[in-house]
């Protein structure tokens, strides 16, 4: 087995542990931190089910962002929706036989790559040219966009310009999943693609990418507007009554 294969196998095991472990820890932290007061941004749904639906509207169609700014919404939605399709399509490299619905998504997922990169370029353009947004951008904001653009561009390159040996790539990842390591093709575009993906996985739990789990825990969105009918009391606040 080549050194390259060993390095990438190790990289992906480590990245997976960091991504899953890191996210699990963050979610544990968010869960255990109490929300002592009822603070939904109103008007808000008055039932817990309604509040759940509100959160899902934020997750699926970016409801509040749509209210705010149609350009950010357009580019942001384009990127995230396309990313979702691309990720679904990539399940083909991790399943054997490939699940039927993944086969159905395949053609959409292929071209979604272009929409994804276009959305990212739109977001980056705003970050560079809209003065307010440039002012609030940190270097890492630019780098994360570049990272994602790099992932998209290298992926599109392999699909539409210089094909990589996809059968070998699949056997590498299926091998990783069963702890039986198969060689990884030494194709530069593939190596760039995989390295950037691993970096993304590693920084996920320690960066602003935490907006993904965060949105589910946002008290202004996930709390029902029912404070006159239900008493909310955090454990530390209940202590004050003793």
């Amino acid at each position: 087995m080549s050194l390259l294969t060993i390095i990438y196998a190790g990289l992906f095991y480590a990245a997976t542990v960091i991504l899953v472990g890191g996210l699990a820890y963050r979610i544990y932290e968010y869960r255990k931190t109490p929300a002592p007061l009822n603070i939904p941004t109103t008007p808000a749904p008055i039932t817990p089910v309604g509040a759940k639906l509100r959160v899902w509207r934020e997750v699926l169609v970016f409801e509040s962002l749509f209210k705010s700014n149609k350009w950010i919404w357009l580019f942001g939605f384009m990127f995230h929706f396309a990313l979702a399709l691309v990720l679904m399509r990539h399940l083909r490299y991790f399943t054997n036989p490939v699940w039927e619905w993944v086969v159905l998504v395949q053609p959409f997922g292929m071209y979604a790559g272009f929409a994804m990169v276009a959305g990212l370029l739109g977001l980056w353009g705003r970050r560079l040219f809209v003065e307010r947004i440039r002012y609030i951008s940190t270097p890492s904001d630019h780098l994360i966009l570049l990272l994602l653009i790099g992932i998209g561009a290298s992926g599109l390159g392999m699909k539409f310009v210089a094909h990589t040996d996809i059968v070998d790539v699949k056997s590498f990842f299926l091998g990783l999943m069963s702890f039986n390591i198969h060689p990884l093709p030494a194709d530069p575009a593939l190596l760039v693609h995989l390295t950037l993906v691993a970096v993304l996985m590693i920084i996920f739990p320690i960066s602003k990418l935490l907006h993904a789990p965060g949105v589910f825990f946002s008290p202004t969105r996930n709390m029902a507007d029912n404070p006159r009918d239900k008493r909310h009391l955090a454990p530390w606040a209940a202590e004050l009554e003793k």
Partner: peptide, 9 residues
């Protein structure tokens, strides 16, 4: 943690 500096606000 959650802010991505999107500029909506």
């Amino acid at each position: 943690d959650a802010c991505v500096h999107c500029g909506a606000c």
